[in-house]
Structure formats: C-alpha cells, structure tokens
Design a protein around this nucleic acid. Structure first.
Lengths: 334, 334
DNA sequence: CTGAAAGCGCTTACAG
DNA sequence: CTGAAAGCGCTTACAG
C-alpha cells in the first residue's frame, strides 16, 4: 500500500489539513510545523494522488488532443510543441488518433469528457456538424490547430492556407508556368484543401490563367498517393509544366514517378509541395515548398488553452502564424 | 453544471447504487428498472465521471509512456501500435518525451506515479540505475519497448539487436567488403548501440576481419548526424568500402555527403542503415537496411501490459520480434 | 496558525 | 432485486 496524506499527518503529528496546506504552499503555516511536515513527507516517500486531487478540485490538468495520425511527421511536430509547453505548466495530454474520421472524432470527444479533461485540442481537417453540436452542448474549452473555424466561433492557430497556396502557385506562374496541375485531398470536405484550392485559383485568375479540370487530381497525402496521382496525370496526352502537391510526401511520390518514367525534375516538369517535410531539403532535387511553423502551432495552441483556463485575456480568436515559401530546386524557370 | 449519477437516480426514481449497477452491467437488476435507468441516462445526457470512478476503483485505465522524442518517425510508429491496442481495451495513454535523458525519465516516472497510471511503458536507450531504483521501490508494472533488460528483470519487446547488426554486416562482407565503417550513437551507454556493436564485431570476427578503430565514428541519429560523420570519415586518407549506420536517417545523410563530395553510392562506397525508415524505399539509391516491426513492438508492449494488469499468464519475459534484412540498391558487390 | 468535518462523484459490501 | 451508507484520497470553508 502506498502512503497517503493521513500517514504523513500521523508521522508529523498534525492534521491532514495542515499537510495539505504545506503541499499546496498555502502560506499560513508555521515555519516549524512546515518543516516537520516536509520531513515527514521525505521520510515516508509520500506522493500526492493526482486523481483524488482532481476529483476535489474539478480540474485534471489534462488536455485531450485529437490528431489524424500521430505517425505522420507533420502532426508529430505539432504534438511536440504542445507537449513542451504543457510540461512547463504541468499539464498532461491524452492523445487520440482519429484518422480524420468524424465518427472517431466524436467518439474521442466523449472519451475526453468522461476523462474530465480541462480542455480539448482539435487537430484535423475541420469540424463536422455533429462535433460542433457536441462542443456547443458543453462548456469544455476547445482550440483548433492547423485549421481555422470558418465561422469564427472557436480559437484557432493556423497559417493562412489560402495565401500560402496563392504564394506558391504565384511562384510557379512567375517562373513562366501556365499549365499547372493540382494534387489535392481525396476528401472534398477538407477545410484546408478547400482553402488552398481557393488560393490556387486566385493566383491563376490574377494572371489571367484558366483552371484545367483535367489537371486537378484527388488522392492520398502520402508518397504512394503522389506516385499514383502522377501516374494518372501522365496518361494525358497534354501535360502541365508544373504541379502543386498539397504536401511534400505527395510531391516526393510524384517526382519519383516522373523519374521512373524517364522524366527529369525540374527539367521536364516542376513539382512543389507543402509543409517542408524534414527530408525535403535533403533530396535531389530539393523540393520547393511552403513551410509551416508546426512546432509553434502546437505550442501556441497549448498556450491559448492554458490562458483560457486561467481566464486570461486572449488577443485574437484566430491566430495566423506565418508561412514561408522555401525555394529549392524542383522548379524550372521557363 | 454537468449531470451526476444522483441526477439520473432522481430522474429514474431509483438509488444511485442501482444506476451504478446498470452503468457497469452488473446483472442483478430488474429488466424494467434497467430500462427506466437507461432512459434516464439518455434523457439527462449523463456521462460517467472517470476520475471519480478511478479514485474509487484504484485504477485509472491509463498507461504512462515515455519515449525519447515523438517527432522521430521510429517512435511514432511504436506509439501508434500502443494506441491502437489501448483503444481496443479502453486504455488511454499519457505521453512524455524524455530525449533519452535520465533525469527527465526519472521526473516523468514520478509524474506517472502521481497520476496513478496502471502501468508504465518505457521506450528509450536503457534503464539508468536511478530509474531501476524507482521501479523497484514501487509495484507499478513496467514493460520495455525496443530495448531489452540486460538483467531479465522486466518484460520487454524488441528485436535481437545483436543479430540484426550481425546480419547486415554479414551481408556486406558476403558482398566482398573488408573495410567497414560503423556509425554509432554518441551516447556510449546506449544499450541498443552496444548490442549492435557486438553483432557488428561478431560478423567481422567470423570472417577473420579486424575492427579498424578509425572507422568507428560516433554521432547523432539524424540526417545531419550522418552527413557530418561522413564528412569526418572522408578526411581519412584510407577509406572503407562500406559503412553500417545505426539508423536510416544517418545513412541518408551519409549518402548525401558522399554525393556532395562527388562520390557515387554504391559505386564508390556502400551504405546500409537500420529501421527501414518509410522513405528509404523511395530514395535513389534505395537504402539497404534492417526493418524492425515498430508498430508491432508497440502493440505487443501494450498487450503484455494489459495481460499483467489482468494477472494473465505471459509466456515469455523478453519477447523477441523478428527483424528483416531489406536489400535495396545501396550496396555494391565487390 | 491549526483541526474537524464536509464533500468531490463514484462503487460495492451489507442488509433487507 | 434494491437502497443506505461507507469510503477512495484529497482540499478548504469554517470555527477556534
């Protein structure tokens, strides 16, 4: 049996109330009593029971965080950011992989409530209506990472996805590209996918270019996904001179397929990605991409959450973090 | 205010004991009463409070898991394995990044105890003496993932690291390599590093080859680390024909440095890695490596933990999962 | 400055 | 089959 506060109290010859006070650094304890209690704690090897404390305090110092898939490097960095600030403020996190499936998101939301988390961090493609209903019928604070809330109801931290897509498309156009393919998410409801599509189209429009529907391909956010999509694209008789892939893994797959088909990047086709995957700088060709401050997104989410719990004032509801166009070698100047 | 078991009881006109019984599927409840309670639960939208339950039951259904760094892909897969089986059995996990630093490991161990986790999963380079002391003065079950316990005290799940290193070194030797460099961990205490070194030396010895201390270089388990190490290696006047890097990221970095120095892989030097990093098959050249079943390691760890908590019999203390030599294009036959 | 007591939201042995 | 009550290990308002 482990030692309880009662045991410490007995050892120190005081009441449990007093022990609790020294544990929580409540000032009005006599210095000598305090020392006696501290010695008793030391001697007994007492460790407070966080569960009991949570029940009494109605606060668990735990966040629930849902992400699509922890084995994807993008999310992994976000989580590290969250963890690092959580550690500073003594919060723990419960992690759930949703695979971006709304039913899993809903299930885990309920799990979080049962576990009495103090706040929920949502990272995913966007809130389903069912999830919004759950959020609304509940007072648990929520913050969104890597997505914005289209309606501006909840706190969020993300880059400006539309602008990011605009920037990289613009980069292509300024390098003389006129026919540009777009490799996007197979999930039409993806908020981020939609935003980037908007930015892509806006850049086209600004330069008087028209979208070619044949060049918009939907697939998986993976190397294999990009590889397959490029396979599809190459069946066309007319080819674009460049492709915008919605993440770097897709871009890597697309490049590999091009090379396997005897084509060179960027000589025969330019390919750009998104997210600045850690490997993207090491590959040949280095991949031109848009970097997101993933670690910061996670860290800021956690900070906002903690502020909400402390009822501190939070400056802006939707925090936009800066993206950065990273130019490497996968784009040819025409 | 959220609804409590008391509110449900009132609604259904029964005692809280009865509500608790239907919640926990304890059979001896009248069918009709049961239905009334279920309706009341539905109506009030009651969700049980897991914290209160944990306090009473002395069981949190939570595992603490410590890993070096969640942003490294190797660990990320392990975690996914853990999570997936935890979900099946309704366990949650609290995650901590230790960066393989013993002081952090010790700190988080205490955090886990305070949080009353039901079990601890240790993933790291090996147990420090201080950590062992903590484990011993405590009854919380522990299982080790990706490392073995040299003394056989604790349950563990890992590949046979010595044999894996032996196999891949052997592969090099059978391809005619006689001078082989070894890129290893800068941390001498790494248990895994030591085991692999043993296997490396054993393979050398078997073929009557001698170790060349100049060719053993210590560095970081990252692309940058491999890049730098290769830079160091290349300062020698005499060069090996092959290098064994202790992970694929290191191997990728080494290859990049070779290429940046105008050398070709595998023509000028062969390079092999470890772990079968997801990108290793997509690169040119494809990297010859040893695959570990990372997801399975995590999943099995979790299953063992759960068995321990149920006092089920567990067949073996140290589970060895199979590794696999994956031959791609980074080794030249001499 | 300190202690006795209530209460956080559950579960379960006991009695009926 | 069901309920009253104790208790899990804490914190804190209240009284002294």
């Amino acid at each position: 049996m482990s030692v309880k506060i009662k045991d410490v109290a007995k050892e120190a010859n005081v009441s449990v109330a007093t022990v609790s006070r020294v544990l929580n650094n409540i000032p009005l304890v006599n210095d000598e009593t305090k020392k006696r209690v501290q010695e008793a704690i030391e001697k007994t090897g007492y460790k407070p029971n966080a569960i009991a404390r949570s029940l009494k305090m109605q606060k668990t110092n735990t966040f629930g965080i849902m992400i699509p898939d922890i084995s994807r490097p993008y999310y992994t960095q976000v989580i590290r950011g969250v963890e690092d600030v959580c550690n500073i403020y003594n919060y723990n996190i419960i992690l759930c992989n949703t695979d971006s499936e709304p039913t899993k998101e809903e299930k885990y939301f309920d799990v979080f409530l049962e576990k009495q988390v103090d706040g929920i961090l949502y990272i995913g493609k966007g809130l389903s209506q069912a999830l919004i209903n759950k959020i609304e019928s509940n007072k648990t604070p929520i913050v969104l990472g890597a997505v914005n809330d289209a309606m501006g109801r909840y706190h969020s931290v993300a880059i400006n996805n539309e602008l990011a897509a605009y920037d990289i498309t613009n980069h292509l156009i300024e390098n003389g590209h006129r026919e540009i393919a777009f490799f996007t998410d197979e999930d039409e409801k993806s908020y981020v996918g939609q935003e980037r599509k908007k930015g892509f189209l806006k850049a086209l429009k600004k330069h008087g270019l028209k979208e070619n529907p044949i060049f918009e391909l939907k697939g998986k956010y993976s190397i294999r996904g990009g590889y397959d999509l490029m396979g599809e694209l190459l069946t066309n008789t007319k080819l674009p001179t460049a492709v915008v892939a919605l993440n770097d893994e897709m871009a890597i797959g697309a490049i590999r397929k091009l090379e396997d088909s005897g084509k060179k990047v960027p000589e025969d086709m330019s390919v750009v990605g998104f997210n600045n995957f850690q490997l993207s700088e090491w590959l040949k060709p280095g991949i031109t991409t848009v970097a997101q401050p993933m670690y910061d997104i996670g860290a800021i989410c956690a900070r906002i959450m903690i502020k909400m719990l402390n009822n501190s004032k939070i400056d802006e509801k939707a925090v936009i973090v800066p993206h950065e166009l990273i130019i490497r070698d996968s784009v040819k100047k025409l």
